[in-house]
C-alpha cells in the first residue's frame, strides 16, 4: 500500500507523534521544574543545563514548552471529545428523525456556527473566572455544530442505502439502525474531521491563553508564553519564537494528518470496482 504513504501522511504522523510524545513524557519527566524561578539566571542562553535557555524569570524553557504541550493536548482532546460526542449524537438524531426536528437542530447549529467562540469564552470567564476549563468548554462548544453537520450530512447519505432499507424491512427501528448501520459507516469522515478539529482546538487554546482566558499561571501554555514574550520582543525574541514554532508544529501536524486521512477515506480517490 505504498501509494497511501503520501508525504502529507508521513510528515503529519511524525509531527503528531513528536508533540504527543513530548506531552506524554512531561507527565513523568522534565529537565527541570517548569515553574522554578531563578532570577539570577534570567534570559540565560542555551547551555548543557538549559537546552533552550531560560526566560525573563529564569525558568527552564524546554520544561515549560513540554508542560505546555501537555496542557494544549489535554484541552484539545477533552474539547474535541466533548464537542464531538454531543455533535455526533445530535447529527445522528437529526438524520434519524428528519422533518421539523432535523430543521430545528440544523438551524440551531447554524446559529452556533455564527456565534464567536471568543465571545463565549469571555462570557464564561466572566461567570466562572478564567481557567483552563473555560477554554475547554468554549472550544467544545464551537465543535458541536461542526460535528453535527458532518455527521448529519454523512448519515443522510447512508440512510438512502439499500442495506438501511433492508434493515427497516427486517423490522429494525430508527435508533437501532442509527446504532448498527449509520454510526459505523459515518465513523470515517467523523474521525477525519476530529483530526482537523484537533488542530483548530490547539490554535484556539493558544489564542485564548494569549488573551489570558486559558491556562492560569504557573501552569504554562504556548499562548501565554507568547503573550508574555511580546513585550520583550526586541530584548529576547527567542522567547516568542519557541512557543510559536511549537504551535506551528502541532497545528501543521494535525492538519496534515487530517488531510491525509481524508484522502485515504475519500471513496472518490479509492479505485472503483472493476465492472
Amino acid at each position: 500500500m505504498n501509494r497511501h504513504l503520501t508525504p502529507n501522511l508521513i510528515l503529519g504522523a511524525i509531527l503528531v507523534a513528536l508533540v504527543v510524545g513530548v506531552a506524554g513524557l512531561s507527565l513523568i519527566w522534565t529537565p527541570h521544574d517548569h515553574a522554578l524561578m531563578n532570577i539570577r539566571e534570567r534570559f540565560g542562553a542555551p547551555s548543557d543545563v538549559h537546552w533552550l535557555g531560560t526566560d525573563q524569570l529564569g525558568r527552564d524553557i524546554v520544561s515549560q514548552l513540554m508542560v505546555a504541550a501537555r496542557n494544549s493536548m489535554t484541552v484539545a482532546l477533552i474539547a474535541v471529545l466533548m464537542g464531538g460526542s454531543i455533535g455526533v449524537a445530535l447529527g445522528l438524531l437529526a438524520s434519524a428523525l428528519g422533518g421539523w426536528f432535523e430543521d430545528l437542530i440544523m438551524r440551531v447549529a447554524d446559529i452556533g456556527f455564527a456565534f464567536p467562540a471568543l465571545l463565549f469564552a469571555i462570557m464564561l470567564s466572566a461567570v466562572f473566572g478564567p481557567s483552563l476549563w473555560v477554554a475547554v468548554l468554549a472550544i467544545a462548544f464551537i465543535n458541536i455544530p461542526v460535528f453535527a453537520r458532518v455527521t448529519r450530512g454523512a448519515a443522510n447519505v447512508i440512510w438512502t442505502r439499500d442495506y438501511v432499507a433492508a434493515a427497516r424491512a427486517a423490522g429494525q427501528g430508527r435508533f437501532a439502525i442509527s446504532r448498527d448501520h449509520i454510526l459505523p459507516n459515518v465513523a470515517a469522515p467523523v474521525i477525519v474531521q476530529a483530526t482537523i478539529e484537533f488542530a483548530i482546538a490547539i490554535l484556539a487554546e493558544a489564542a485564548l491563553s494569549y488573551l489570558g482566558l486559558g491556562a492560569q499561571p504557573p501552569s504554562p501554555s504556548w499562548g501565554r508564553m507568547l503573550s508574555e514574550a511580546q513585550t520583550l520582543m526586541f530584548m529576547a525574541p527567542q522567547l516568542a519564537i519557541y512557543p510559536g514554532l511549537c504551535i506551528m508544529a502541532a497545528v501543521l501536524g494535525f492538519s496534515l494528518l487530517g488531510d491525509a486521512l481524508r484522502d485515504l477515506t475519500d471513496p472518490r480517490l479509492t479505485r472503483s470496482r472493476q465492472a
Binding site: 442505502r161 439499500d162 442495506y163 432499507a165 433492508a166 434493515a167 424491512a169 427486517a170 448498527d180 448501520h181 459505523p184 459507516n185 470496482r273
Partner: peptide, 15 residues
C-alpha cells in the same frame, strides 16, 4: 421480506 436490486449496496460493508 424484500430483495433489492443492487447486490453491492444492499449489504452493510462493515458487517
Amino acid at each position: 421480506q424484500m430483495v433489492f436490486q443492487d447486490p453491492w449496496g444492499s449489504l452493510d460493508p462493515r458487517r
